[in-house]
Nucleic acid binder design. Structure first.
Lengths: 216, 216
DNA sequence: GCCTGAATTATACGCGTGTATAATTGAAGG
DNA sequence: CCTTCAATTATACACGCGTATAATTCAGGC
């Protein structure tokens, strides 16, 4: 046996399969957000996850498998908090909608990192059928949730589908602009605009004061 | 002199500097739209433009120079038609706005190719200062034009800045969704939703019939 | 009618990539 | 205690990339 001091072989550390998969996926998302898809080379991913490139092949088969897993994780991280916020807001339809909107444009989600990450994947969704399916599923889940929230509203003069599409587009656009040009808005402005515009689209009384109920 | 039949050297064809730059930039945009940024290698770009990789270096210095030029061209192709449509619509503020909106969501602009192209560049705008400046300039030009159109409107209960941001976000989102999920909408639906939502946001009478004045 | 110089092509280099396969490690079962 | 097998690392390979530089071709000035 070769003494540790003389062997430059990387120490052999075991871990659970779940932990390894999670670490590798997290490394991909970090790298993509920092330097674009190009930065997420297998070697860089492995280094950040503290393992060796071969392990990626062991767990994900090839690079496409890794990227697909990372994309699924990203979509969940974007959509789930909004659904959870609505559910946590109780039963009042207006409060539920306001909570959903506020969560969608939460400063954490508005981070340019997330937008960059999302954009970096978009072009792949057009050519990779698996990614495309994941994209459509996530997008429609979000829009359907929005449509359900709108349908539960007391009075809305627009068909729920139309209102959901328009409101969803408004959220997407604000999320995009807020994430890409953070210094173009004063803090909280993006959320306020979303609530104002949503109120006008849906014939609702002003929603803005609802979001300011988070006192210290 | 070696007979042409024996020389496999590519025929030497001269062209103007403008034509060469335009051909190379067009080749970049085509390739990026088709296969993402990865597909736009210097060799592939040169082949599509009918030249040799060395020419790219001659005209653009390095790959970054090429990509910057292509980005500027893309932004102009997205923004200019909207400005032109508004100017061509005469002096009525409402007609001008409707024309601008319709142009922004024109089927040609709504092509998934354009969205893909745009997304493919986004992550670079976060790290490349020159691209970032180009992005901000194009974005703000668009939004300022929108704000000017809104400010000229007869009555608007929203501050022009807020209305412009919201409407711009709505356009961005619809453009995104329409381009990425074309089969998720019936033809013309995206434009109709944009006009309906804009009318509600701006306290305007319905705008939808304005876009249907294009009879044969 | 040559000669200069820009436009264009050709070739070579070094590097990093994804993939494949072999070598090692350690834990669990008999 | 030994065997077995999955988890992990190490090494090798072939390829395409961006860049650099040298060789060619053509047009215009003298």
């Amino acid at each position: 046996m070769i003494p540790a001091a003389l062997s430059d072989r990387r120490p052999y550390l075991r871990d659970s399969e779940d932990a390894r998969r999670a670490a590798l996926v997290a490394a991909v998302l970090d790298l993509v957000a920092e330097g674009g898809v190009d930065a997420a080379t297998l070697r860089a991913v492995a280094a950040r996850a503290g393992v060796t490139p071969g392990l990626i092949r062991h767990y994900f088969g090839d690079k496409d498998g890794l990227m697909r897993a990372a994309y699924g994780r990203m979509m969940a991280a974007m959509v789930d908090p909004c659904l959870a916020a609505a559910d946590a807001a109780g039963v009042d339809p207006v409060a539920r909608l306001a909570a959903f909107l506020a969560a969608a444009l939460d400063p954490a989600a508005l981070d340019g990192r997330t937008v960059t990450l999302w954009a970096a994947y978009i072009h792949r969704t057009r050519h990779d059928p698996a990614l495309r399916a994941a994209h459509e599923a996530g997008y429609l889940a979000f829009r359907d949730a929005l449509e359900a929230l709108i349908a539960a509203l007391p009075a809305c003069h627009l068909p729920p589908r139309v209102a959901a599409i328009a409101l969803n587009a408004l959220l997407d656009g604000l999320w995009l602009e807020g994430g890409l040009l953070p210094q173009g808005f004063v803090p909280g402005e993006v959320q306020r605009i979303a609530l104002t515009a949503a109120a006008r689209l849906l014939d609702l009384p002003e929603l803005t004061e609802l979001s300011e109920t988070e006192g210290p």
